[in-house]
Amino acid sequence: MTTRFSWKTILAACTFGLACLAGSAQAEPLRIGYSDWPGSVAWQIAIDKHWFAEKHLDVVFDWFDYGAMLDAYTTGKLDAISATNGDVLSTGANGHKSITIMLNDYSDGNDMIVATQDIKTVADLKGHKVAVETGLVDHLLLLTALQRSGLSENDITIVHTPTNETPQVLASGSVSAIGVWQPNAGQALHEVSGSHPLFTSHDAPGLIYDTLSVDPLSLKNHEKEWREVVQIWDRVVAYIKDPATQADAIDIMARRVGIAPKTYKRFLDGTHLLSLSDSRPIFERGPGLDSLYGSDENADRFNVRYNVYKHPQNVGSYIKPLF
């Protein structure tokens, strides 16, 4: 699936029927799950600057590893998640629906196909082995790269590998390329001499959107509050993009994940943050990746093909922008 986590864990975590329904009706405060992805970490700016308190919003952000966040949402412990559009579909199809109310960003280089020195183009992968965690977001990125080069997955040998193990597998020489996202991508590039990005999410903008997606009952009961949360996001993006405040923004984000601001700046550069005005055309219906609808349809086809879930989703029922 177009996710940064495995559907099996999501499915195992979800309690169907009354348990999920009961968990979706959250009491105050509104609880939002966020994790270590720049478009999600950016919320830390609003937290540290007390912008929610300024608006008298009772909002709590809970920090998780990404997979644990999805688990918490599927078991009804969160009102909303900062997650990829593919995850929004998979969690919904597997038991706990959510509605995308805004877009944080799209991946703009942080997801990569990293190849060894002898592989110069995607076409050169023909007949070679590629390590990727199948069913996840960089599997989709790999298929997109192959398709654009006139190849298919039948032209390579895919070696299923957990994402955090792909740098070691590339270093072992047993594969010619890996599908990987940051920070594992950076680890591979650092550890394997001559390795280089062969194809990245910068080459396919809109393939991977990161969203703020909300439990339908919470959205129904607290739409006014969610609209105010969305407006605060616009303030976050402006603070990051303003040259006068960008250094402080990066320092806040880097401190949240425990790395140097200079390093974090590179991760941020691979994430295309979206203001509300940037998002408006993306929320218009269209077949391409420049539309959330088109990107969701693409993710949905991939998810069904690779058995993330059995039946295609009505992607329009997962989308309701609040601006």
Rank of each mutant, 00 (worst) to 15 (best):
M1C: 02
T2K: 07
R4K: 06
R4N: 07
A12L: 04
A12C: 07
C14M: 02
A19P: 06
C20Y: 06
L21M: 08
A22H: 02
G23C: 00
Q26P: 10
I32D: 02
D36V: 11
P38I: 09
V41F: 11
V41S: 11
A42N: 11
W43D: 06
I45A: 09
A46F: 09
F52L: 13
E54Q: 13
D58I: 05
V60E: 03
F61R: 11
D62R: 15
A68L: 04
M69W: 06
T74M: 14
T74N: 12
T75A: 06
K77G: 00
D79N: 01
A80L: 12
G86L: 01
L89E: 00
L89F: 01
G92Y: 04
G95V: 03
G95P: 04
H96M: 07
H96S: 13
K97I: 08
S98T: 02
T100K: 00
L103K: 06
D105R: 06
D105N: 10
Y106D: 04
D108I: 12
T116Q: 07
A123L: 15
A123C: 15
K126A: 06
K129E: 01
A131I: 07
G135F: 08
G135V: 04
H139Y: 06
L140H: 01
L142Y: 02
L143F: 04
T144S: 03
R148C: 13
R148G: 13
S149F: 12
S152N: 14
N154D: 14
T157K: 01
V159T: 03
P167Q: 07
V169D: 07
S172Y: 06
I178S: 01
W181R: 07
Q182W: 14
G186H: 14
Q187L: 15
Q187S: 12
A188N: 12
G206V: 14
T211E: 03
L212K: 09
V214P: 05
D215W: 03
H222Q: 15
K224L: 12
K224G: 14
W226H: 07
V229F: 14
Q231W: 01
D234T: 08
D234S: 08
A238C: 00
I240K: 09
I240A: 11
D242M: 11
T245D: 03
T245I: 08
Q246Y: 03
R256Y: 10
V257M: 15
V257K: 15
V257Q: 13
A260W: 01
P261G: 07
Y264G: 13
K265H: 07
K265A: 13
R266Q: 07
L268F: 03
D269K: 14
T271D: 14
S275P: 12
R280A: 05
R280P: 10
P281A: 05
E284T: 10
R285N: 06
G288D: 15
D290L: 08
L292V: 15
Y293H: 10
S295G: 15
E297N: 01
R301S: 10
F302Q: 10
V304K: 03
N307P: 06
Y309D: 02
K310A: 13
H311D: 08
G316C: 08
S317T: 15
Y318N: 04
P321L: 07
